[in-house]
């Protein structure tokens, strides 16, 4: 599968990763190569195979409905670049 530069830029934008023109060129080649390699999986007939959801045969562990965590606002905001009154402070985002 061929990935063009517009697709590279689209993916980069969705992932909020800044790429230079030169990087975009390289990524075009790289991503195309990766996808082509993965495409080999298409050769296997999986029509009658259920999707693999886990490599372990077990059912999902569930939790009781009890409050057992939280109350640690200081820890939560410890790494925030900017805080005020235990809020995270971020550049203005408003519609």
């Amino acid at each position: 599968m061929k990935v063009d530069e517009a697709t590279v830029r689209h993916i980069a934008r969705l992932a909020r990763i800044k790429v230079t023109d030169e990087e975009a060129k390289n990524l075009e080649t790289e991503l195309s190569a990766i996808l082509t390699w993965v495409e080999q999986l298409g050769e296997v007939d999986t029509r009658n195979v259920a999707p693999l959801t886990s490599v372990v045969q077990m059912s999902m562990k569930k939790r009781e409905d009890q409050v057992s965590d939280g109350d640690c606002a200081d820890d939560i905001i410890a790494n925030a670049p900017e805080v005020a009154d235990h809020f995270f402070v971020v550049p203005k985002v408003v519609e």
């Binding site: 939790r63 409905d65 409050v67 057992s68 965590d69 939280g70 939560i76 905001i77 235990h86 809020f87």
Partner: peptide, 20 residues
């Protein structure tokens, strides 16, 4: 009482980031 995937409280109106 608790959140969908964590044990923090769902109570409305707590101090900022206290039910996290």
């Amino acid at each position: 009482k608790a959140k969908l995937f964590s044990g923090a409280s769902t109570e409305f109106g707590g101090e900022p980031n206290s039910h996290v």
